[in-house]
């Protein structure tokens, strides 16, 4: 379960660059909910994910994950509950470390890191089997440095790392936006598969309306730091891109001028 209570965040307060990024966002998610999030640039989608992850303190409100109020916890302290994949493929993995070392780091998320071995022998077979499910041939490159992988391979690996420990909440922040269309589709399908197989509570930000409709059981549209649309279950299954654009125009009083959304 996730409860967001009236989250508020203003960047650069009392300056000429003041920006109200979150303007009282409240949201309740049940276990197994897979929410897709859309909205124009600067609508607050990524900001919301960062607020949940604790990248910076919020001005007001509460973040409650699985009954634990994590509002006052820092980013690394919240990590045990969260799996995260970022837009930038460089961000989610340590380039100068081996594939197996990256996975081992993720495996120990939420645990105290002491003087036990960084990677154990039984883990090797486990990771090999896991990597084989990606179908990218990474299972034979366990000791390769992550830096030599392609963006798509790195995102797939990050996804694996984020879901290795079955996080309470998976945060996907436009994680396919930097990939070429074919790779993006592959990573999306993989995400969907992992999420549905493990019934992971997930929030996925996307710029692609079709993907937002295609995946998940709930869709949220944000604008100017607020949730302006929240569609679940049956209604979501019937949604079309046209519906979404009309809804956006109605709710925000402006046209959704997003080439990427229109063209895809």
């Amino acid at each position: 379960m996730l409860d967001l209570v009236n989250l508020r965040k203003t960047f650069n307060p009392n300056t000429i660059n003041q920006k109200i990024a979150l303007d009282g966002v409240s949201l309740h998610l049940d276990d197994g909910d897979f929410v897709t999030m859309i909205g124009g640039n600067g609508a607050g989608k990524s900001t919301l994910l960062n607020a949940i992850a604790g990248v910076w303190p919020i001005d007001d409100g509460k973040v409650i994950i699985d009954g634990n109020d994590v509002t006052s916890l820092s980013e690394h302290q919240r990590a045990p509950w969260l799996g995260r994949v970022f837009q930038d493929p460089m961000r989610g993995t340590a380039a100068t470390m081996q594939i197996i070392e990256n996975l081992a780091l993720a495996k120990r998320r939420g645990q105290k890191r002491g003087l036990k071995p960084g990677v154990t022998k039984p883990e090797k077979d486990e990771y090999k089997a896991l990597l084989a499910t990606l179908g990218l041939g990474l299972e034979d490159r366990l000791t390769s440095k992550v830096g030599v992988l392609s963006g798509g391979q790195r995102q797939a690996l990050t996804l694996l790392m984020a879901t290795l420990n079955k996080p309470k909440l998976l945060l996907l922040d436009e994680h396919t936006a930097a990939l070429d269309p074919r790779t993006a589709e592959k990573v999306l399908q993989l995400s969907n598969q992992i999420i549905t197989e493990n019934r992971l509570m997930t929030m996925m930000v996307t710029h692609n309306m079709k993907d937002a409709i295609r995946f998940g059981n709930r869709l949220i549209m944000m604008n100017e730091g607020r949730i302006i649309l929240d569609i679940k279950g049956e209604d979501k299954a019937k949604l079309t891109v046209r519906d979404l654009m009309d809804e956006f125009a109605k709710a925000s009083g402006e046209e959704l001028a997003n080439d990427r959304a229109l063209l895809s």
Binding site: A79, A94, Q111
Partner: peptide, 8 residues
């Protein structure tokens, strides 16, 4: 970034 996300 990665380190923090992994709870380090």
């Amino acid at each position: 970034h990665m380190a923090r996300a992994q709870g380090i």
